[in-house]
Write a protein that binds this DNA or RNA. Structure first.
Lengths: 200, 200
DNA sequence: CGAGTTTCGATACTGGCGTATCGTATGCTG
DNA sequence: CAGCATACGATACGCCAGTATCGAAACTCG
C-alpha cells in the first residue's frame, strides 16, 4: 500500500499558491502590514479569500510566509574564530530582522504565536530550529578549533544571542549599532571561553 | 502665571479611570485577552467606549495598563554577589513575564509598538527604563564590591539578560527552567567578570 | 464509471475595533 | 456671568478578519 502523500479530493492549484504569495509580497511592500487586506490579496492573486484561508490560518501567517523569502539561509561563513563567527551570525540575523517587511511582520507573528499553539509550533519548526542549528554549527567549529573549554549548551547561547537582538529591535525599539553589537558578542565570547558550562 | 497642569475644559473623572481599569482587569482575568471586548469593558465600567478611547489608544494599551499592577517594582534585593543579584533579577523578571495576564498581553503590546511610535515611547518609559535601572543598580553593587574589572555597559547587559528571557518565553515558546536560567546567568557572569568592556 | 472527498470561485454574514456625531454637563478664564 | 474647551453617555457607522454556504470542478479509489 503506497501512500502517495496525496489524499483524496481535488489537489491544490500550485499556481494559486504562487499567485497568493506573490500578491501578498507585493502588497506588503507597497502599503505595509496594516493596510494589507485579505480581500485585496485575494483580488490581486485572482482568486478568493477562501482559497487563501485554505492555505494560511490568518493574515499574520500569510504575511509571515510572504516576508520569508529564502527557506535556505546561507550557512554562516567560517571566519576562523568563534568571535568572528558569532559576529557574522549576529549581523546576518540582525539584518534579517530589520528588513522593512520583517520589522512589521515579526511582532505580529509573535502575537499570533501567543494565540495559537499551532502557530507556535510552526514558528519553531521554521525559524527557531534553523537559527539554533546555525548557532550549533558555529559552536562545533569553535570546539574543533579548541577555543572552548567545554561544549556550551546550544539553547543557552541561542537564547542569549537571538534574544539580545530580538529584544533590542522589537521591545527596546532601538537597533543596536555596530559597536553595541560588538559589545554583545564580546561579552558572549568572554563568557563562553572562560567558564565551564553547567550540564543542561 | 501658574501652570496648573490642567488644561481648559471639563476634567477627567477619576472614578471612571478606576472603573475602566478595574473592569479591564476583571475581564482579562475572566475571559482572556482575545475575548475581552471594548464594549464589554465599557459596559462593566458603567461608561461608554468613547470614555475608554479618550484614555487609551487601543485595546492593547488598555489591557497593558490593566495587566501592569505595580508601577513600583520592588528593587532587587542585595544578595551579596553579582551572580546572586542577577539570578534574583532574572527570576523576578521571568515570573512577571509568565503571569497569565502578561503572557497574553505582552505579545500584543509588542505588536502595537511596531505600529505606533508613540506606544513605543510609552513602553520604553514604563518598562524598559525601569528594567534598565534595576540592571544598573545590580552592576553598581558589583562594581562597589570589586567584582568587576571595568564597569560594563548597562544597555548591553540589559539587552542580553532581558532578551534571553523574553525571547525564550515569547518567541521560542518555552519557559526556561531553573537550570536553564542558571546557565544563562552563569554565562553572563563569566563574561562580565572576565573581559574589559568596550567603551560604549 | 461511480462514489467520495477536496478545491475552487463567489458571495453573504458575523463580530469587533476604532471613529464620528450629538446633545449635555462641568470645569476654567476673563 | 459669559464664553470656551473638554469630558460625558449614547449611538451609529465604516472597515476588515475570519467563517459559512453553494454549486461546480477535479482528483482518487474501487
Amino acid at each position: 500500500m503506497v501512500r502517495t502523500g496525496q489524499g483524496p479530493g481535488r489537489p491544490r492549484d500550485s499556481e494559486i499558491d504562487e499567485a497568493v504569495l506573490g500578491a501578498a509580497r507585493e502588497l506588503l511592500a507597497e502599503v505595509g502590514y496594516a493596510a494589507v487586506t485579505m480581500d485585496a490579496a485575494a483580488a490581486r492573486a485572482g482568486t478568493s479569500k477562501a482559497a487563501i484561508y485554505r492555505r494560511y490560518r490568518s493574515k499574520a501567517e500569510l504575511l509571515f510566509a510572504a516576508a520569508v523569502h529564502s527557506p535556505a539561509p546561507a550557512p554562516t561563513a567560517d571566519t576562523g574564530s568563534l568571535a568572528g563567527d558569532l559576529a557574522a551570525l549576529a549581523r546576518r540575523v540582525l539584518s534579517d530582522m530589520t528588513t522593512p517587511a520583517a520589522r512589521e511582520v515579526a511582532p505580529q507573528v509573535v502575537a499570533e504565536v501567543a494565540r495559537s499553539p499551532e502557530a507556535a509550533r510552526r514558528l519553531r519548526d521554521v525559524f527557531v530550529s534553523g537559527e539554533r542549528a546555525e548557532v550549533d554549527a558555529v559552536l562545533d567549529r569553535a570546539t574543533g578549533r579548541g577555543e572552548l573549554p567545554t561544549r556550551p549548551d546550544v539553547a543557552t547561547v541561542h537564547r542569549v544571542l537571538g534574544g539580545a537582538l530580538f529584544f533590542s529591535v522589537f521591545v527596546i525599539g532601538e537597533e543596536p549599532d555596530e559597536a553595541a553589537l560588538a559589545d554583545v558578542v564580546d561579552l558572549l565570547v568572554a563568557g563562553l571561553t572562560t567558564r565551564s558550562t553547567l550540564p543542561s
